[in-house]
């Protein structure tokens, strides 16, 4: 039944859409990006010739504008990764555990409520948070001042408040996605394990630590990796809420790569920056992978 030329042709046809789109939209841009990064490529003037590793050297040489852009962007992005990943994972887990323990009739309602913010565009999210956190007469400041605070907080124009605003906006916006993954993982935990834990006299914490956590650990690791990648790609919130300020302190690496390409016209430099960013992300994720699975091996 599954033999002969017809079977082979059909199997090739069935798999070919994936192969084609993989080549067109992943492999080809990647190869092109690597190739461009070795060239002096100006967006206006085009390819001005092969320069070898010069673009990388310029990015990594202290005192150049490209080094300043890359290092500032990288530092800001790493800062955001460090402050955003723990709340994005832990709050999502907390919400998932709460929903998991709700009566069945409420589960769907709350799951939808927490997930719905994820479907909103970053433009709308930014508009909401700009209004909420406006220094002059913003909603949050009005509430805080009604509660007795003397001076308005400059949420968008001073650090650490600007990062805090970006963090709150990001958590509100994206928490639903991680929460859904945790809910699915919790649904997979065998209920008999909890019954056994109950018989052994385990409390809520004991059940979580000895039953739930080991069962959802792999999904949790996947969520951490996905969240690190998402935080590395920070762009919309800092572009639209703080516009990189105050004093370029929320300029993310992606924003600075965009500046190199579309502001300075340096496509070669921008491609080299993007590849360096990819390498850094790969190293960090590899390290995470190694740290997470070292013990189990």
């Amino acid at each position: 039944m599954y033999k002969g030329a017809s079977y082979k042709i059909w199997s090739v046809l069935m798999v070919s859409p994936f192969i084609i789109f993989f080549l067109l939209f992943w492999a080809l841009p990647l190869v092109l990006g690597i190739w461009i990064s070795f060239h002096n490529w100006n967006v206006s003037a085009g390819n001005l010739g092969f320069v070898g590793l010069d673009n990388y050297k310029m990015i990594l040489t202290s005192g150049t504008i490209y080094n300043d852009l890359f290092m500032t962007g990288l530092k800001n992005t790493l800062y955001f990764v460090v402050i955003s990943v723990p709340p994005l994972v832990l709050i999502a887990l907390g919400l998932a555990l709460i929903i998991d323990n709700l009566p069945d009739k409420f589960k769907t309602i709350y799951r939808t409520i927490f997930f719905i913010s994820y479907s909103i565009s970053v433009t709308a999210v930014s508009a909401i948070f700009l209004w909420l956190f406006n220094n002059n007469g913003g909603f949050i400041n009005n509430v805080l001042m009604s509660l007795g605070m003397k001076e308005a907080v400059n949420w968008l124009g001073e650090q650490p408040y600007a990062w805090l605003t970006i963090l709150i906006a990001t958590v509100w916006w994206t928490i639903g996605f991680n929460m859904m993954l945790f809910i699915n993982a919790l649904n997979e935990v065998d209920s008999s394990l909890y019954e056994a834990a109950d018989l052994d006299g385990a409390g809520a914490w004991g059940k979580f630590w000895y039953v739930t956590f080991p069962q959802i650990k792999n999904v949790g690791f996947f969520i951490v990796i996905m969240t690190v990648i998402a935080s590395f790609n920070l762009y919309g919130q800092t572009r639209l809420i703080t516009n990189g300020g105050p004093e370029q302190s929320t300029n993310s690496l992606i924003m600075n790569i965009q500046t190199s390409v579309f502001g300075m016209n340096q496509l070669g430099i921008g491609s080299a920056m993007a590849l360096l960013m990819g390498i850094i992300m790969t190293v960090i994720l590899g390290l995470q992978y190694w740290l997470s699975y070292r013990k189990t091996d």
Partner: peptide
């Protein structure tokens, strides 16, 4: 006033003063 952010010159012009809460 101090601490005006993006487009603060226009936003403050369009605000209405609110006893210590808005300039």
């Amino acid at each position: 006033p101090a601490g005006l952010g993006l487009d603060g010159e226009f936003q403050t012009f369009m605000k209405e003063a609110q006893e210590g809460k808005a300039y």
